[in-house]
Computed example of a mutant assay.
Amino acid sequence: MSLKITLTEAVKTAMKAKDMAQVKVLRGVQAAIKQIEIDNQVELDDKGVLEIIQKQLKQRSESLEIYKTNGRDDLAEQEQFEINVISQFLPEQLSEDALNAIITETISDLGASGMKDMGRVMNAVKDKTTGQADPAAVSGLVKKALAG
């Protein structure tokens, strides 16, 4: 079952349970997906949907940090709730060891030898790990592998 269908089914389930807070979050994600599809005149596959879900999570995580820093616990709670709802649609996250293995394999496949190859390696690793790893964490591991 595709990720978009899974998302739609989750909205239906939340509506039946009268959990309007969850419905609001899920509809927001659906709206973001639909907006990208309309703007780019494409039908997104699971990989594209995962990228949007990751972007939604990143936005909420950044907001959460800002709210915590400014002492807005009420807003921070809402952001954390939204993160929890959206996170259920991500596949299981890769361990650091698994990520390092993918990065090492990619570097050898591409013949990368230094920081000048960072962009190529990042693009290749990103394609392999979409939805399964935080891009910022991947970037740090790629830098470490290329530097040392």
Results as ranks from 00 to 15, higher is better:
25 V>C: 00
62 E>Y: 09
100 N>K: 10
113 S>R: 08
111 G>C: 01
64 L>H: 04
52 I>E: 09
27 R>S: 11
86 I>L: 00
107 I>A: 03
95 S>Y: 04
59 Q>A: 15
50 L>N: 01
56 Q>F: 01
32 A>M: 11
103 I>E: 00
70 N>M: 06
94 L>M: 12
50 L>V: 00
38 I>G: 12
84 N>Q: 13
102 I>A: 08
72 R>Y: 01
75 L>N: 06
55 K>F: 15
108 S>G: 12
106 T>Y: 07
29 V>M: 05
59 Q>R: 15
87 S>Q: 04
97 D>F: 15
77 E>M: 08
73 D>E: 15
91 P>V: 03
98 A>R: 03
109 D>L: 08
56 Q>P: 05
48 G>Y: 06
47 K>P: 09
37 E>Y: 08
86 I>A: 02
42 V>H: 08
93 Q>S: 06
40 N>S: 11
90 L>R: 07
52 I>M: 14
26 L>A: 00
69 T>H: 15
25 V>I: 05
86 I>P: 00
68 K>M: 09
94 L>H: 08
24 K>G: 02
66 I>N: 14
66 I>W: 06
75 L>S: 05
60 R>M: 10
49 V>I: 10
65 E>L: 13
88 Q>M: 07
24 K>I: 00
27 R>E: 06
49 V>P: 04
28 G>K: 04
88 Q>T: 03
28 G>V: 07
83 I>E: 01
92 E>M: 06
56 Q>N: 10
68 K>N: 13
85 V>A: 02
97 D>W: 11
62 E>F: 08
34 K>R: 09
72 R>F: 10
77 E>I: 09
37 E>P: 04
33 I>S: 02
105 E>S: 14
61 S>D: 11
109 D>T: 04
63 S>P: 08
99 L>T: 06
26 L>C: 01
68 K>T: 07
49 V>N: 05
79 E>P: 00
24 K>D: 09
110 L>A: 01
40 N>K: 12
64 L>R: 04
106 T>R: 01
97 D>L: 15
103 I>V: 03
69 T>V: 15
101 A>K: 14
96 E>M: 15
32 A>S: 14
103 I>Y: 01
26 L>Y: 03
72 R>G: 05
112 A>K: 01
71 G>S: 10
93 Q>Y: 04
74 D>G: 12
89 F>N: 00
105 E>W: 09
54 Q>S: 08
66 I>C: 11
62 E>A: 09
44 L>Q: 00
113 S>F: 02
40 N>E: 11
85 V>N: 00
86 I>W: 00
89 F>G: 03
85 V>Y: 02
26 L>V: 05
71 G>D: 12
51 E>S: 14
101 A>P: 01
80 Q>V: 00
72 R>D: 07
30 Q>G: 10
87 S>I: 04
63 S>G: 14
58 K>P: 05
84 N>D: 13
